[in-house]
């Protein structure tokens, strides 16, 4: 009795079904290519960027994400862009934010979709042409792109 229920519950584990996507999924390699595209191949230094994203996500269809960058945000010295990349969605590009001295504060937020557990990357480009980054590993228990 108990056993058959367990078997039944295990059978349910196969739900939800992940929808077939025709496009090839992004890979850490294609993410690196998108990142290189953003930086023009310039070196990226870890630091100055704070990426806040939950470590454990119940549904990949909506993951809150906020990024802040340590910068005075003056006319001479500010964050020009913040780019978000993911490793395994169909496209590595997730969002790009264009800021300037009128921003006052280099802090942005959005909500993203994650098609499974992966590392999320935030890269900031400064007025001096330097790039800074932060990464976070996210565990997604129910990925985006599913339907039951």
């Amino acid at each position: 009795m108990t056993l058959s229920r367990r078997t039944a519950l295990t059978a349910l584990l196969s739900l939800p079904l992940v929808l077939q996507t025709r496009a090839a999924l992004a890979t850490p390699e294609s993410m690196q290519a998108a990142l290189d595209d953003f930086t023009g191949g310039a070196p990226v230094t870890p630091g100055r960027v704070t990426l806040k994203i939950p470590l454990l996500v119940e549904n990949g269809n909506s993951v809150p994400l906020s990024v802040s960058v340590d910068s005075p945000m003056t006319a001479e010295d500010h964050v020009e862009q913040i780019a978000i990349f993911n490793e395994i969605n169909p496209l590595p590009d997730t969002a790009r934010f264009h800021l300037g001295p009128r921003s006052g504060l280099a802090a942005v937020e959005t909500r993203i979709r994650l098609n499974g557990s992966q590392t999320v990357h935030a890269v900031a480009r400064m007025t001096d042409g330097s790039f800074w980054s932060a990464t976070t590993d996210v565990i997604v228990t129910a990925p985006a792109c599913r339907e039951v």
């Binding site: 496209l91 969002a95 264009h98 921003s103 006052g104 504060l105 959005t110 909500r111």
Partner: peptide, 26 residues
């Protein structure tokens, strides 16, 4: 802001349905 672009977000399919964007302005 007063006709001048002060912020822009480029969104890709990885942004949620009913997209949400937060930012700052001096």
């Amino acid at each position: 802001y007063l006709g001048e672009e002060v912020f822009r977000a480029d969104l890709y399919p990885a942004i949620t349905a009913n997209p949400f964007v937060g930012f700052h302005l001096r």
